[in-house]
């Protein structure tokens, strides 16, 4: 898994590529939680993400809980179909603001 952070004046973005499983979820969690402190608008781009397990989903849940008391926003964007399917099966599609494309690309 590789993570690229983009920090702008009005938003932050995390581009995540590769495989997000129980080996890599800790690094993703650190990167995401650090970034959430910076801006009101936060985007996770999964365009290059090839695989996600419940360990990756759990990180998003932790982030959503952290944001719920702050009024900040987390958007998940550009998921490939097989990643979106995991979101659908797990019920996560209903929990997050999901966009088919990256709004800042």
């Amino acid at each position: 898994m590789e993570i690229t952070e983009i920090i702008k004046d009005n938003y932050t973005m995390l581009n995540v590529s590769g495989r997000l499983d129980s080996t890599t979820a800790t690094d993703f969690e650190k990167a995401l939680l650090n970034l959430l402190d910076l801006q009101k608008e936060n985007v996770v781009c999964f365009k290059e993400l090839k695989y996600i397990s419940s360990s990756g989903l759990r990180v998003l849940l932790v982030a959503a809980k952290k944001l719920s008391t702050t009024g900040k926003k987390l958007t998940i964007s550009a998921m490939q179909d097989h990643i979106k399917e995991v979101f659908d099966i797990s019920g996560f599609t209903e929990l997050f603001n999901i966009l088919p494309e990256n709004p800042y690309e």
């Binding site: 397990s53 419940s54 360990s55 989903l57 759990r58 849940l61 932790v62 809980k65 995991v86 099966i89 797990s90 019920g91 996560f92 209903e94 929990l95």
Partner: peptide, 20 residues
Amino acid sequence: IEKIQKMKKGGGLGMFLMKK
């Protein structure tokens, strides 16, 4: 979904996915 929202760490999610 409601339970997932309330869960602190998403416990049981892996098992849930496996069965689905």
